[in-house]
Design a protein around this nucleic acid. Structure first.
Lengths: 192, 192
DNA sequence: AACCTCATGTAACGCGTTACATGATTGG
DNA sequence: CCAATCATGTAACGCGTTACATGAGGTT
């Protein structure tokens, strides 16, 4: 159900399916993803519900743009979804599953290698989110954004940052434990 | 692809589909979930691949138990999956999406209410994970587990704890910002 | 008698991914 | 001329959810 409501959320400003596809590649990337092949049918479904209206506009290049706009019923539906309490679903986290079973490799060096790879990936993602944060900070001069829309978008970004920093903290903690363990193991069986 | 590999991971010790269903309700709940209706066909598929073997055993109550056991090919497949680098997929986080669009409610009191509800939910989950951590701590006497299997299961649990604490830290941070904002707003427009 | 736990499944549906189709314009 | 960007989609497939079916044995 969430994708549809995210589309309604974005469509408080009129947009085309193509535009929305870009949002999922940019602004929303850290909490949701959708391909355009999924977006186009979803928009039609929202229109059938009466939550969106559509007008066609010629485009300079390519086929006519279908610009969607939210209706009053759509706004009500969005508000219901937002006010209905937190939408916390079950998270499927392959990397924790992997950690959970990593003993099957029977080798703590392999564990170290995998955790280091995780750290590298998340550091790269953190750099992207941090750039977004720096942008907001520059625009507001270091204060919390006054504007309600920006305030909430920034709050969502802060959540992403907290989560990423927690992942990285776990990597550091785990690597430290692994380090201590390898150090201890090599002092137990010292080289000749 | 992950569910199948998680099943292989668990099946380093023989188990039935029913047993595995319980794991997803208990031990694996914080990073993966699967219904038994999904597990039974998945086990058959793994068997077709030659990664599992199955023997039937009579059960004291109910129909015969199908006890699955991993094969050498299955172990190789699991090791490949584990060693292939971190399995970091796209996360779909409805609650961040919700935060992102919460300005549509046009009311910071509603935002406060939602964030408080999130905090309550995550506090409850944290209590569960923390109990698991306390159990391990009690068993090892406060040290990191020596046993390789326990070490990795505990590492996975620590990750869950880090993530939850990050969520809660965000709630606290956000509620503090909201508080300051409401305080400022009421001093700008003081009651008569 | 009603209900819980053990133990197996099937069927229908919905959400998400990948691949493909079409076609105009702009830039190298 | 080739590639990228704009702009719309469809089709096939796979993963996940919900609901249902069956039936034995033990508990209240």
């Amino acid at each position: 159900m969430s994708l549809e409501h995210i589309l309604l959320g974005y469509l408080q400003k009129p947009a085309t399916g193509y535009d929305l596809g870009r949002e999922f590649a940019d602004g929303a990337a850290h909490f949701w993803h959708a391909e355009r092949s999924q977006i186009y049918p979803a928009l039609k479904k929202l229109q059938r519900h009466g939550w969106l209206e559509c007008r066609e506009e010629p485009s300079e290049r390519g086929p006519a743009r279908k610009v969607y706009e939210i209706t009053e019923a759509g706004r009500a539906e969005l508000r219901d979804w937002l006010a209905a309490g937190p939408h916390i679903g079950r998270e499927r986290l392959g990397y924790i599953a992997q950690t959970f079973f990593l003993d099957a490799l029977g080798d703590l060096d392999e564990t170290t290698r995998i955790v280091e790879a995780m750290r590298a990936r998340w550091r790269a993602t953190l750099a992207v989110l941090d750039a977004g944060r720096a942008e907001v900070m520059a625009a507001t001069g270091g204060a919390e954004p006054e504007d309600l829309e920006l305030f909430h978008r920034y709050a969502a970004l802060r959540m992403g940052l907290h989560q990423l920093r927690a992942k990285l903290a776990w990597c550091d903690e785990t690597l430290a434990i692994l380090d201590r363990r390898t150090a201890r193991a090599s002092s137990d069986t010292p080289e000749v």
